[in-house]
Nucleic acid binder design. Structure first.
Length: 552
RNA sequence: UGCCUGAUAGUAUAAUGGUAGUACGACGGUUUUUGGUACCGUUUGUCUAGGUUCGAAUCCUGGUCGGGCAACCA
């Protein structure tokens, strides 16, 4: 806990409420996803907020599925959402579904009809839209608005009984057709949908709308602080209206600005499109901003929570730089990831003065950030090594602390070598580098007295294992694809995935497991892909290391 | 141009009438067997015009700019 950290506006509201004794000082929040897609980093902000607020003030949080539209929802999404929330590290007090309340909601609707505050309307969707007027012109009542309570009661019962086809009738709240707030112009409460629901099956053919389900569900559960995003601000008067008319538990709605991350999209509709049109592998493609994508990419729950904490909460529209997310994962992984060596773009380096056929065992600590190195591992050294192609230059510029003819570097956890020569093929590509090693410079008992600026990673040729390595870059080429002209998909980054089919890795890496982060020294943080096999290891790059080396 | 809502360094976020601060970024340096990490330093800001006040990022008025609202979606 950082001392003297100032409160965000939601915490201020909660503290004021507690001080004033509202609801006896209780704090009960909820996280209310619709099970129509996978959770993304924006949901993580909401999850951290709702669970965090409750935890801070000794309250609880319910997980409630807002499952009032059976045609878009599926049990697959329910399962993934539960998995993701748990993975993020949160436990809900209760698992509820808006569909649990269908009977109760029906009763409440009947109550409104009895109080002459709701009516059955036979108009088509188009007619209703036209009769609602425009933002500058008031709506006009139709003939159905004045139906008697008895008739409405009967018609609504008939709607429930399945006497009408989809779209034939709706139930509307009788609020104010002239309201400057469009949401108050007799909003729909129920529509007819002869559709199978993933939980209630075929028990219902009428389903409540968001505005007549969400607030009522909050009230039924005695949610004290119903936290949602800014686009629901205009719904709040209606949220309050229903609760007042029905004299329910006084849940209150508060709104914050949703998370926007640059170089990606966050709307479920757009993410669904990317999946369906195969621009990505699936919801858990490591380039996706989904929780499952981030998990597969190698992000940790702690790093995502830290990110949500750092971005703060306010009511102002924001665009967070993805660099902050990357900072959070680097910060976490630097302290936990074991260091290993892997050569992604190999070139052969031959130590001409090292005996052929000889092998030495070298040692390296798992993580220098941890006391005693978090243990160590062994790896073989020999005459022929794979090194990174970019660690050699034919004509090295000033301050190039790597290899070039006449230059010396330290091989990590091994010897200092000097580059003497190199071999080119017919096309002018460098194919081999010839070096000599300094026998007295071995790591651990270096008596050479020589200091070199650069240290490079390497893997012994005869001992190396191979793996496929996937390098990910931002999904889009522009900061805000949604804001650009035309189709957002026109702005996809064609190089968001680079596959390296054969990278050479040190033998110990055969023991990698998905979710366990590894730092390929000098290259970045990686994790084994969830679909990797023993026969073909696949590593995903979570994030690069910060690179302070600027080429000129 | 009806209603709602917001505006503080490049990006976020504090300061709640009393010294505009913090983080990320960028730039420079020290340390380093990762050009990583760590540490140190530098950098840049109150949308605008008035008003109230000893004093305004904060309160008031006008303007400007951004976001949202007219789904039988949530």
């Amino acid at each position: 806990m950082s001392e003297e950290r100032s409160l965000n506006f939601l915490e201020e509201i909660v503290e004021e409420n507690i001080a004033a004794g509202v609801n006896g000082g209780a704090v009960l929040t909820r996280f209310p996803p619709e099970p129509n897609g996978y959770l993304h980093i924006g949901h993580a902000k909401s999850i951290c907020l709702n669970f965090g607020l409750a935890k801070k003030y000794n309250g609880k949080t319910n997980l409630r599925f807002d499952d009032t539209n059976p045609t878009k929802e599926d049990i697959e999404y329910v399962d993934s959402i539960k998995e993701d929330v748990k993975w993020l590290g949160f436990d809900w007090a209760n698992e509820f579904y808006a569909s649990d309340y269908f009977d109760k909601l029906y009763e409440l609707a009947v109550e409104l009809i009895k109080n002459n505050l709701a009516y059955v309307d036979d108009s088509t969707a188009e007619e209703i839209a036209a009769q609602k007027g425009t933002p500058t012109e008031p709506g006009t009542p139709n003939q159905y608005r004045s139906r008697s309570v008895e008739e409405n009661l009967q018609l609504f019962a008939d709607m429930k009984a399945g006497k009408y086809s989809d779209g034939a009738k709706v139930l509307r709240a009788k609020v104010d057709l002239a309201s400057p707030n469009m949401h108050l112009r007799d909003p729909l409460m129920y529509r007819i949908k002869h559709a199978h629901h993933h939980r209630t099956g075929d028990a219902w053919c009428i389903y409540p709308m968001y505005d007549f389900a969400h607030g009522q569900s909050d009230a039924i559960e005695h949610i004290t602080h119903s936290v949602c995003t800014l686009e629901f601000v205009p719904h709040r008067p209606l949220y309050d209206w229903f609760i007042e008319q029905l004299e329910l538990f006084p849940s209150k709605q508060y709104e914050f600005a949703r998370l926007n991350l640059n170089y990606t999209v966050m709307s479920k509709r757009k993410l669904l499109q990317l999946v369906e049109e195969k621009h990505v592998e699936g919801w858990d493609d490591p380039r996706m901003p989904t929780i499952s994508g981030l998990r597969r990419r190698g992000y940790t729950p702690a790093s995502i929570r830290e990110f949500c904490d750092r971005i703060g909460v306010a009511k102002r529209e924001n665009m967070i730089d993805v660099g902050l997310l990357e900072f959070c994962i680097r910060e976490d992984l630097n302290k936990t990831a074991w260091r290993r060596m892997a050569v992604l773009d190999p070139i052969k380096c031959i130590l001409t003065n090292y005996p052929e056929g000889e092998t030495e065992i070298m040692h390296g600590e798992n993580n220098p950030e941890v006391e005693d190195g978090d243990g160590s591992r062994e790896f073989p050294f020999s005459r022929e090594l794979w090194i990174e192609r970019e660690d050699f230059m034919e004509i090295p510029p000033k301050k190039f602390f790597r290899l070039g003819v006449g230059l010396m570097v330290r091989l990590k956890n091994a010897y200092i070598i000097r580059c003497n020569d190199f071999v080119k093929d017919a096309d002018g590509n460098v194919t081999e580098i010839h070096c000599t090693y300094l026998p007295e410079s071995k790591s651990g008992n270096d008596t050479s007295g020589i200091n070199v600026k650069g240290t490079i990673h390497w893997v012994s040729v005869p001992h190396a294992k191979t793996a496929e390595v996937r390098l990910y870059d931002r999904l889009f080429q522009v900061e805000n694809p949604q804001h650009e002209e035309g189709d957002f998909k026109d702005y996809l980054n064609p190089n968001s995935l680079q596959v390296i089919h054969t990278a050479y890795i040190e033998p110990d890496l055969a023991n990698a497991t998905p979710g366990k982060a590894i730092q390929f020294m000098r290259k970045g943080y990686f994790t084994l892909d969830k679909y990797s096999t023993q026969d073909k290891l696949v590593f995903n790059r979570t994030v690069t290391l910060k690179d302070g080396w600027v080429k000129k």
